[in-house]
Each structure stands twice: as C-alpha cells, then as structure tokens.
Design a protein around this nucleic acid. Structure first.
Lengths: 192, 192, 192, 192
DNA sequence: GATGAATGAGCGTTCATTCAT
DNA sequence: AATGAATGAACGCTCATTCAT
C-alpha cells in the first residue's frame, strides 16, 4: 500500500490544479511539484498527460457512481428514486467541489464529448446507468413526459449542474432544503 | 470603414477556430492567417489575446441580446413571454452553433466566472437582463416557484444549454416541435 | 537576398555541430545559439530537426554534384573519366571536411539507408548518376570487371571514403600525388 | 559463473538494440528489460553507458580477431594469406550482421575515432594486427604497391565494409563466389 | 548483489508578443 | 497603419543514473 502513495499524490495534485486553473493552468511540472515528486515520476504512473486526465476522470466517476447507489432502493416508488439520485448527485458535487470543477473542464474538451457519446449510446459503463434505466422505465410506464431520453437527461441534469456550479462559485448557498426543492422542480420538468 | 473590416475578420476567424478547436487550437498566428492579416495586426485591434477573447464574447452577447428582444412583447402574458425568450434563445444557439460552442468555451474559463458573477449581481449589462426582470416579476407575482433567482435561472437555462449542446454535437435533432416541448418542460420546472 | 542569411547561418551551424559531434551533439538550442538566432527561429526555416537534417544533406549533395561535373569530358577515354571523377570526389571531401563528416553521420542513420537505396535503384537524382552511367557503360564495354554494379561502387568508393576519413582525422596527409596514386589503385580494382 | 551470465545478457541485449536502432534507440532501461535484469544492475557490470559501449566493442573485436586467425597459415604465399584474411573478415560480417552494424555505429562516434587512431599507431592490440604485419611485410617485399600503410588498409578494407553493408541491407547477395571475386579485386588494388 | 522507483537536466517544439521595416 | 520575421520562455516528455530497500 506504499506504492499508490505517489500515484495518489499526483492524481490529487492534478485534480486541484486542473479544477482551479483548467488544463492550461496545470503543466506537468507544476503537477509534479505540488505532488512532491520529480517531473519524470508522473510518467511512471501515467503514460502521458492525456492518460492522466482520463484516469483522473475515471476515478471521479467511480467514486460518484458508488456514492450515487448508496442507499438506492430499486423498488422504491419512481419519484422517490428520482429524488434520491438527484439529491445524491447534487450533494456529491457540493461536497466535492474540486471533482465537480474537474468534470466540467473534462466534459468541455474533446475527451468529454467522446465519453458523453459513449454514455448516451450505452457503450460505456458509467455513473449514468442508474439514471438511464430509471428514465427508460419512467418513459415506458408513462410517468415521464414523452420526450427523447437525451432531453429528459438535459431537463434533469442541466439545472443540477448549473446549481452546483452556482453554489461552488459562491453565487448561492444550497442548504438541505434548497437542494430538495430544486430537485423537486426538476421532477416537475420531467414528470408527465 | 476599412478598419473595422479587418477587426471583423479577426473576430470571425477567432470565433471559428476557438469554437471548433478550443482556446488551445487557436494560436494567434492561425487566427491572423485565417483572417487574412498579418500576425502583428491583431495587436492593433486587441491589446492581447485575453482582450480579443473578451471582446469576442461581448460581440456574441450583443447579437444574442438583440435577437432575444426581437418581437418580445413586454405586455404579453407571463408564460408566453417565458416561452418566447426560451425559444428565441434555443433557436439562436441552434442557428449559431459557433457562437454557442464559443460561449461554452468561454464560460469554462477564469473570464467566464467573473462575467457570470457580474451578471448575477446586475453589475453588467447583458443578455440576461430581460430574463432577470421577467423572473423577478414572476417571483413577485407568485407565478414562479418561491426559489432564489439564481436557481430559477438554472432551472430555465440549464436544460436549454444542455439541449443545444446535444443538438450541435448531433446526439439529437431539435425540430420546431421538440424545441417547444422542451421549453414547456422548463416552464413546468419554474412555474408554481 | 537578405532573407536566406539566417537560413544559411542555421545550415552552417548545424553542419559544424553535427559534423563534429554527431546528431546527438547538436541540440537545436545549440544550433540556434551558434547561428546567432533564437531557438524558435530555426522552425521558420525548417519544419523540424529531421527536415533540417535532410535539407542539409541535399545542399551538400548539390554542391558536390556540381563540382564533380566541372570539367568532366563525357567523351574522354574511359580511364580518364574514372580518374577525373574519383579525383574530384576525393578533393571535394578533403577541401570540405565538414561536409564529409556530415555525410558520414547522415549515411549512418535511417535516412541514409533510404537515400542509398533510392540512389542504387536510380529512383533519385543524385551525385552518383555520373558514376552510375560510367560504370554501366564500362561494364557493357567490358572495360570493367564482370561484377554487379553495387560491388563496383564499393571497390571504387569504399577506399576513397576511407582515405578521406583518414586524411581528415589526420592519420595521413593526402597530397596531390598520393590522391592520384590512390585513385589509380582503385582503378586497378575495378578494371578488367 | 553466475555473474558473467548477467553480463553476457546485458552485452547481447545492448548489441541487438544498438545494431538495430542505433545508440539513440537503446536506452539503458530497454537494454535492461531485454536482458532480463534490473536497470540498476547494468551499473554493477559497467560503470556507465560509455563503458558498456566500449566493452561491447572489445568483445566483438576479440571474437573477430579469433575467427580471423583460425586456419591462418603464416607461411602461406602472400596472396593466399591476403585472400584468407579478407574472406574471413567478409564472412564474419555476413554471418554476424549485428556485430557489423554495431561496429559501424561505433566507428561513427567519438570513441570510434580514438580506437582507430590507437590501432593505426599500434598502441592497441586489435583485430588488425595480422593485417598490419602482413601489409608491412608485403610493402617491404615489394609485393604491394608503394603506398602508406593507411592507404593500403583503405584499399583493402574500404570495399569489404561497403560490400558487407550492401549485403546486410539487402542491396545485393554475396555468395561464396562473389565474395572471392570481390576480394580478388581488392587484391588487384593493393598488389604491385 | 540485485533491484526498479525516482530523479531532473535536457531534449524538440510551440506560440504570444514585439519591433524594424 | 500594417506587416511577418524573430524571439525565448514554457511546454510535454525521455532517459542516464542513483540509492533505499
């Protein structure tokens, strides 16, 4: 367990710098310095910067996925499941602002587009699978509006991401109650 | 009238390159070449790259603002005004995908945050003023949910931006009907 | 004619460094410094280091080719023509030791092999064409030994290159007489 | 007897990589991996990369020297001895293309020049001693042309090296007969 | 003795910006 | 005013070498 030590430091350092200053503002030398390792050391753990960026994305997605499913009752009423997932997602972002900022940077880049495409087409295991199933079921049971899956996603996630950003940037403070009410508003958008 | 000619070419060239390839993929030399001017000439019109980026943002915002207000009846019923603005916005993005891609790049950067802050605080003239007034009025008249303005913005715009992106990236095709239904769903999110 | 000034300086500087220290010992920064230009300037004239290396080769080959054919009488007796070409070649090397050292470095590299192949197959215009014609004619007229063209080349050039190297490295001094006698010895090797 | 095992593997691995890809294409880590040892282990057997390169050269020279003298009859007629040595040398190269390629790389480097100087001056035991004696004797007995020893070497070896290279690179196929005839041609070059 | 993770100087290359023309 | 050649700091990455285990 001593080995991943350095890898973790590098990942953490890259996360911080990229989240705060974008890909531009995170030269490998700076990542190395903040991680407390030599510049060349990064390349023992990651083939190149692209790989580092993608693996960091994978790590975040994994953590998110896990937290999202915690306490998720697949047999709960439809609305309850929606609220659970939405709340968990928003909470994750609020509690992990660096992760959130990183994901935004990532999605706004060539990699991000490819990943998003794979997810929508279901080619990729990812944090949205639970959502995807839920939405497909909801559509089939006519609980949700008769809109394409993609649009339902946009209606549900668009506001969550925007709200998370506003909270993180300090434009607003999302407390427990406000989170709930925001997600209920999203529910109004997608429900029939 | 010959001067703004070059300025326009530079602006257009920067827009195309940044929208398509990001800030990374738009070196000043390439912007100059595509604009048909010398590399140094850019610096006669824009102090540096940051200024160019910010002014380009301003131009787009101006155009958008103008189109948004076209045919906007300040005395129409509340819901109609919301639908009008939302539709105009989404249409603008669909018809000006380069502008949309540029705005995404821009918002995802240090500048973007500052601009957004100014807008929310009302320090800045901008495309959202009509929305801001509308929402403030809606809140006061209890037509809209009793949520902070920022959250209402997120509920209304978050899905629109997401949908526009999906359309531009080819994940879905937004026709007239789908646009309308999407915005009506947004209305469901914000209305009481 | 002021433009090629810098290009020439770069070429000259690269020639000197590579001839003296090999490709390894000629980092672009050092080439630039010796040429009295900025590091980035090299890339205005040569796309990358490989291109610089190849163009430098082409320049030398061109100069050599020209000097080789100076005073070459296509209708002179066969032996005289051989001696003329051989002498001209050896003289060129002796008078342009940097060029010679460079060619050796070049031929001893991936590029060099490809170039050599093209030349032998006649796919490439080059300094050996005169030799090639001469040798083919000599073989047809049964003046030369009945050996493959490639071997005849080796018998004629191998010693010349070796002698040039020995001279340049100071192992021997090739004066006019010794040059003549060396080439006459080569003639003995190839003649029937 | 377990130690030289590793040393041999390192030597072999370095030979293969350098012969095939040049000094550039043979990083120590790759040499180590191919040799099946740790990267640091190389430094137990060789002080640094330069030493490795030089010792590898010595090994090849030793092997060559030994093979050259096999079946060499010091009392055979002069021409026969020349042909024997020449043939043995050319055969060695053809049968050990990696060694040949390595020697070419080596001679084309700062080390190479020093070694060649030592050899010519007789300061160094080496594969050419038999040749050197033979040539000095031949000069004294007036069997060979009255040319400096160095030039005689060039006339004899230059073509052999060139022919070996052409064979190894596939530009020609040297069979037994062609080898003989090539060396006979070299003999014509040096004999009086 | 053997290892291989760690290092950091050094590489080839890019690009925002300047300035002589 | 307009140019574009020139710059050099900064980038991502490699690799000979060291040293704690």
């Amino acid at each position: 367990m001593t080995k991943p030590d350095k890898r973790d430091e590098i990942i953490r350092s890259a996360l911080e710098l990229i989240a705060e200053h974008g890909f531009h503002g995170a030269p490998m030398a700076m990542v190395a310095e903040r991680a407390g390792v030599g510049a060349g050391t990064i390349y023992r753990y990651f083939e190149n910067k692209d790989v580092l960026i993608n693996e960091l994305y994978g790590e975040i997605e994994g953590k998110m996925q896990q937290l999202l499913m915690e306490g998720y009752a697949a047999d709960a009423p439809f609305r309850a499941r929606f609220l659970h997932l939405g709340t968990a997602l928003l909470r994750y972002f609020i509690e992990h602002p660096l992760d959130f900022r990183y994901l935004e940077q990532f999605h706004n880049s060539p990699y991000g587009v490819a990943v998003r495409r794979d997810k929508l087409l279901g080619n990729r295991e990812g944090g949205c699978n639970a959502f995807k199933e839920l939405f497909e079921q909801g559509t089939a049971q006519q609980v949700l509006k008769d809109l394409p899956l993609v649009i339902l996603f946009d209606l549900a996630f668009g506001p969550l991401l925007a709200a998370a950003r506003d909270h993180i940037l300090g434009f607003i403070h999302l407390d427990k109650q406000l989170i709930t009410r925001t997600i209920e508003a999203c529910w109004d958008a997608v429900r029939r």
